[in-house]
Design a protein around this nucleic acid. Sequence first.
DNA 1: TTATAAGTATAGGACGTCCAATAAATATTA
DNA 2: TAATATTTATTGGACGTCCTATACTTATAA
Lengths: 99, 99
Amino acid sequence: MVRRNVIDLRGFLSFQILHELKRKRFCGDELAEIIGKKKSSKLTPGTIYPALKNLRHNKLVTFKQEGRKKFYTLTPSGKKEYLRTKKLFKKIFKNILNG
Amino acid sequence: MVRRNVIDLRGFLSFQILHELKRKRFCGDELAEIIGKKKSSKLTPGTIYPALKNLRHNKLVTFKQEGRKKFYTLTPSGKKEYLRTKKLFKKIFKNILNG
DNA sequence: TTATAAGTATAGGACGTCCAATAAATATTA
DNA sequence: TAATATTTATTGGACGTCCTATACTTATAA
């Protein structure tokens, strides 16, 4: 059992995925790289793929297969959900960010 | 089973507790009120007290009993941990906040 | 003193996020 | 064609966050 940090900032992965997909389409592997490196290192498949599966099932994202990659984009309700959640996120955390 | 929102921003409670205690001492009930109302409504005892217990056990907070209240403050390592985590938090989320 | 309110606390369950390990499918290279 | 690399995917476990429900302790009010 390895616990590097007492507070580990685990969370908000689905929100971060929507955030990245807001600006550009990405495949799962790219999302694992982009989101992971902000925290420490690339996210493992066991982290990113279940999250994408859940977002698919909730129809917040859709994808287009190209070769062995699946390029994800936001659905209309995914965009709406992202904006709604971002508003809430700002309300909760803006004080922390500006301090 | 009630799921209001697909993305529920669950997380970072311990971090938020440290953030509040950075500026002022609070008892558990006050923290439940302050942190909860930013999201929606007051956090329940089953949410706030286990989190405080964990922070106590990790020696990030300490408390002073006054009447039936326990007033929590950051320990030196609690302050250090807060600053370390805040830096990481900003790295991860500043792009989202400024958008 | 007894009842009530305030504040703290735990148990139990659901869920999302994280990893390591394993596997499968597809594209590329030898 | 066969071997390798890339990308997707699942399983299983640990953990923190969230709730409801229940209970305990201490202070205040009747």
